[in-house]
Structure formats: C-alpha cells, structure tokens
Design a protein around this nucleic acid. Structure first.
Lengths: 180, 180, 180, 180
DNA sequence: AATGAATGAGGCTTCATTCAT
DNA sequence: GATGAATGAAGCCTCATTCAT
C-alpha cells in the first residue's frame, strides 16, 4: 500500500484522492480502510515508516569511534544513498510541507532524528572542529543544502555523479568546519 | 485578496477551499472570480507576484562593481530581509511543493531567477574565488542551506538574531569559497 | 425543505439519504447544506419545528377557566386536528424512535411539553376529578392511546369519523376520570 | 446472534451495521450470512421470533372460561410480564417503525395477533361489557396506552411498581368498559 | 462452520464554479 | 462590481455482501 507514496509525491496529501491510491495499488478503495483508519492515518504511517527507516540507517552506520571528518562523510553518504535508493520516499519526506496533517507521534519521530543530529554536532564542537554556532543551525544548514541538492537533481537542474556528490560533501564540510 | 497567501501557507493549495479564502478576506466567494479565472489562476498569480518581487529586489540590490565577497553578503542579507519581512510569502514560495499546479509561465519566472543566480556564480568562478563545481549546484547548496535555516526559524528550532544571520552567512560563504 | 419530512416518515432517519430528500424537494443535494450543517441538524430542526408548533397550538387553545372535562375535550380535539391536518408531521414525531440522533435541545423541547401536560393533570387531580395516580402515567396512558388510534388509522385498521373520535375521547376520559 | 436485537433497539434497523452486530456478538461478520440471507432476513426473523413468542404467551395464558374482567387482567399482566422480562424485545417490536423493511410474512404474523385481540374484544362486546365501538379501536386504545406506559418507564419518566401496574390496568379497563 | 479480507456501490459532505440579483 | 444561493461532481468513508481459506 506504500505506493500511496507515489501519489503523495506527485500531488501532495490534499491533492491525492483515496481512489487514486487504490487504483495505483490495484485494489479497491475500501480495502485501504482495513489497514488505515483514515487518509490521515495513512500519511502518518507512511511518514513514520520512512523517517524511522532513515533514522535506523543513520544510527546503524554512524562510526562512533572514527574521527569527526570521517563521521561526517559517512553520514553524508548514508543519506545520499538513501535518497538515491528511495527517491520517492525522500521526496515525500523532505520536499513536502506536512504541517497540516502530521500527528503528535509523527512530529516526535521527526524531532528525535533532528535532536540526535544536533547532539552529534555538539560533540564535534566540543573538540573545536566545527564552528562555534548553534548546533541546530549548523545541522539545518547542512541538511538544507543537501535537500537543495537533491531537489535540483530530481528537477533536472544538476547531474549527480560520485565526484559531484563528493565535491558537495566537501563544500558542506566547509560550511560547518572551524577556521574557515 | 492576497491573504489567500495565509491559507495556502497553512494548508497548501489543495487543502485550501475558495470559501475559506473568501472568509478570511471578508468577501464573498464569488467575488474572487471577478479577479481570477480559477483557483489555479489565483495560485499562479500569487506565485509570480512574489517571485517577481524577490527577483526585482535581488536585481536592484545587486552591487555589480563590488567584490564578490561583498556581493554575496548583500544578496544574502537581501533575501534574509525579504524572508523576515514577508514570512508568509517566503513560506509559500519555498516551503511548499508547487509541481502539481504551476503553469508554464510561473515555472519560467522561477527558472529565470535561478539562471541569473547561476550566472553570477559562474562569473565569480571565473575569478577563481569559488569552488570549481557546477555553478547550479553551488547555488542550490547555498539556497538550500538558507531555506533550511528559515524553516528551522519558523518552526521554532533556532533563534535568528543579526549575529546568527551573519555567522550563517559566513558559513555559507565557506560552502562556496575556493581553497577552503 | 420540510419535505424531508416525507422521507423520514417513509424510511426513517437512517434509512433516508440526503440525495433522496433533495430529489423530492427538486433541488441539488449540496443546497441542503446551505441551510443545515448536517443531516442530524436537519432532523433536529424538523423535530423542533413541529414539536414547537404542537406546543404552541395546545398552549393557545387551552381554556384556562373551563371545567376540567371541557379542557380535556378541547385538548383532545386540538391534537386530533393537528394530527389530521399534518399527518406526516405527527407520524414523524410520534411513530418513530428518535433516541439515536436527537440533540439536547430537541429533547428539552419534548420534555417541556410533557411537563406542561403533567402539570395540567395534577391540577385536575387536586380537584379530585382524576384518578389519584402518578400524573405522568395518566398523561402517558392517554397520549399512548391517542397515538395508538392514529397509528391504526394511518395503517388502515380503523376509520376515523367525528363520532369515532368523540367516542375515543370519551373512552380516554374514562381512563383518567376518578370513581370510574 | 439475537443480540442484533440490542443494536436494532439502540440505533434502528438502518442505523445498525452488520459488523456492529457481529462485534457485539463476538463473531465475524461473514458468519451472520451462514444463518441469514441478508440483513432484511435477519430483522424479519427477529421480528417474527418475538412476535410469535408474545402471541404464544398470550394464547397460552388466555383463560377462555374466566369472566371478561379477569381475562383482561390476565392479558394485561401477561404482556406486562413479557415487556419487563424482555425489555429489548418489546422496545424493538413496539418502539420502532418497521414499515420500510418488514416482509409480507412478518406483517401477517403481526396482523394475526391484532385480529385475535379484536375478536376477543368483540366477544366481550356481545355481552355488553365493553363499549359498543369498533373493536379494533378499543384494542388499539388499550395497547397504545400500554405502550405509552412502557415507553415512559424505559425513558425514566415513571416508576413501575406492582401497584402502579395494577392501577394502570384498572384505568385501561375503564377505557373499554361499558357504562363508564 | 467460521473467518475476515476484499469489494464497490452508495452515503454524507465539501467545494470550485456559476449566475441571478 | 459584489454577492451568496445553487449546483453537482467528487472526495472521504461505511457497509452489505462475497469468497478464499
């Protein structure tokens, strides 16, 4: 049923009709209501499913003992890989505004991931490797840059090859790295 | 009538009903159709209105003869000022996915601005001041970082004071600046 | 729009579809929602409208100074006239079970009428003209008998002429009259 | 499965969903269709089941040779007992309007009981013990009064003790008794 | 016999749009 | 120009019923 993902990516939550999702999934509209209480429950389940997957992936891959520069690279590549493997999921998660239908639990899942990332940043700041700014801001700058890159890629404005990704990664490291 | 802006920001295009817009504007629903052919015409007009305003502002403020570093700072501050003065407009333009209803002209207006920005980047690259990457990518990284910062600001995750903005500006300059 | 009355009488509240009501009224289904917030609001409005009309009629006709026997006759005839003039309304009010959709205000309107009737009974009891039973019970017996008569009339089991009505009235007076 | 009774009493036939009945019965919705062809078949079976039970009870208890006054008392008490023992069944049978879904056989069962009662009345009229009115009307008046009493009881407007029931019985006898 | 997932028609309601005033 | 009642298509959701297990 997660092909509802495609519809939400294409037309957004409010722009997608349940019958459209059902048609794409090859099932009857009513069947969706055996698995989800409502359209809202469906988006929220979708959102949490993928956010949790990203989180799990990031947590798992994170090299606790490696040097900060290496940690940054690993995280970057991990998220890039996720976004390239699951472009629809990434587009759904990051390219749409969910404020009007996410429930408290979904928001909490989202915040958790951001809190973790900020904590990571803070640890690196303690070692004076990153700029001494609000860690949340540093994280948002990098994640924003990353999202901008992926959006431009999907909208055909740039080509993403391994070297391009590596160059962008270096640029984003420069964003946060101390000394300048 | 441009308080349709608020509705679109809150619930998105598909999630907003014409009667809601009319109610917020204190007019009758039918009146909207004296000024716009359809709901789609309304969003497109809105989109172009504000995109054009941003563009005009950026073009006007751009210091042709100043050094690149100064040009970057001016542009940055110009967009920050716009976003802080017109938070609803900025949220509408950048925090929502418009792909399902923008018409060709609106898309052209958007592309124009991006093309201009890329051209600026390229000129600076010719002077070896910026990293030798796809200029579009550099531009997207910076604009993405900026958008991430503003989103975090509106969602209450960070505080934006003048020094914070300046620090973020420096960080984004580091993103694009050559040598590192 | 009060021809929704007919539909509710025929198939009950839950058995009646809004489009059916609209079709019978010769309007579009959506139009109903300009005047009523929901199907429930519609039944409640209908219920209150007719209950209030009955109440007004009873209150107005009630001969305060006449002897009790005369008062009883007047009330009886008043309600008979109402039921014969507005058979649909009476059938809707008394032949259907409204418990699952009436709101607090509608219930209050209903209770008010019953309380008034019980008070009347009590006054007559004080004069020892009626049986010394729970006034509410006496009232329910008479009103129940009346309703049974009307139901049988509509379902074709009895014929209602003026003499029949008068005879039934006398029988119901005997129900409540003291001494027997 | 006859706990469908509860659902029908609460929300009426059209307001009750088969899954609701199944849930209350603790079985699967599909199981109901092993025993009844359709929802309509279910109500009709329910209706006939209880109507038949009432009829059997009345027929059985009826004291053929007792004086009319005693016959009336026995019948009254028999139906009161039934209504108090099976309040849900009585509420289902008498407090709801079944016209839109009862089939011919169910209607016949209903009519049979009424015809029997009318015949009884007529026999008593032949002895000049009852008022010389349409026997069907006399029967409806008494049964209507009785139903009104039970409804008021369930809706909490009156208290039903043995003496109250006896007093109501006497009042209803006065309704039908000759001379007044 | 029992289950419960699946269906799809149909119900309530919303909403973009029109049009008489 | 402005209104807002009216429309009817379409959206979300329910539900009687079926059927493979």
């Amino acid at each position: 049923m997660d092909a509802a993902l495609h519809c939400f990516v294409d037309r957004g939550f409010h722009g997608t009709a349940i019958p459209q999702i059902a048609a794409r999934a090859g099932i009857a509209a009513g069947t969706i209501y055996h698995y989800f209480d409502s359209k809202e429950a469906l988006v929220n389940a979708l959102f949490r499913h993928w956010k949790t997957l990203v989180a799990r992936r990031v947590f798992t891959a994170f090299p606790q003992t490696a040097p900060t520069r290496e940690q940054f690279r690993v995280m970057w590549n991990e998220i890039v890989d996720f976004a390239l493997e699951h472009p629809q999921a990434f587009a759904f998660l990051e390219l749409h505004n969910h404020t009007s239908y996410l429930d408290a639990e979904s928001i909490a899942v989202d915040r958790e991931l951001k809190t973790f990332a900020s904590a990571m940043v803070q640890r690196a700041q303690d070692e004076r490797l990153l700029k001494p700014m609000d860690p949340a801001l540093l994280m948002e700058l990098v994640f924003g840059a990353f999202t901008g890159m992926m959006r431009a890629h999907w909208e055909g404005r740039i080509d993403l090859g391994p070297e391009v990704i590596a160059a962008a990664e270096q640029a984003c490291w420069d964003t946060v790295a101390a000394h300048g």
